[in-house]
Simulated scan of single mutants.
Amino acid sequence: MAFQNRTGLLAALLIGMSTALPLPALALDDAEKQEFGAFIREYLMANPEIIEEMQQALEIKKEAETKVLAQAAISSNKDAIFHAPEDIVLGNPDGDVTVVEFYDYNCGFCKRAMSDMITLLDKDPNVRFVLKEFPILGPDSLAAHRVAMSFRALAPEQYGEFHIKLLSGDVRATEAHAIEIAKGFGVDETALKAGMDDPAIDQSIRQTYELANALGISGTPSFVIGDEAVFGAVGEEVLLGKIANMRQCESTVC
Rank of each mutant, 00 (worst) to 15 (best):
F3E: 11
L10W: 05
A11V: 14
I15H: 14
L21V: 14
P22E: 11
A25H: 15
E32I: 10
K33C: 05
E35Y: 01
G37E: 14
E42D: 12
E42L: 07
E42T: 09
M45C: 11
A46I: 00
N47V: 03
E49K: 09
M54E: 02
M54P: 07
Q56I: 12
E59D: 11
E63G: 12
A64C: 05
T66V: 11
I74T: 04
A80L: 07
H83Q: 14
D87H: 01
V89K: 09
V97H: 07
V99M: 04
V99W: 01
V100T: 03
E101S: 00
F102H: 06
D104K: 04
Y105H: 04
Y105I: 02
N106D: 02
R112S: 13
R112W: 05
M114N: 15
S115M: 10
M117C: 13
M117L: 01
R128G: 00
K132Y: 06
P135S: 02
G138C: 08
P139I: 08
D140R: 00
S141Y: 12
A143D: 12
H145T: 13
H145M: 11
S150P: 06
R152N: 14
R152W: 08
L154I: 06
E157Y: 00
E157I: 09
S168E: 12
V171E: 15
E180Y: 08
E180T: 14
A182R: 05
G184R: 03
G184L: 03
G186S: 09
V187A: 03
V187C: 04
E189T: 05
A191L: 15
D197N: 13
P199E: 02
A200C: 09
I201W: 02
Q203D: 14
Q207D: 14
Q207E: 15
Q207R: 14
Y209C: 07
E210M: 12
A214G: 10
L215W: 10
P221S: 08
G226P: 04
G226K: 06
A229T: 10
F231Y: 15
F231G: 11
G232C: 10
G232S: 01
G235K: 04
G241Y: 08
K242Y: 01
A244E: 02
Q248E: 13
C249V: 08
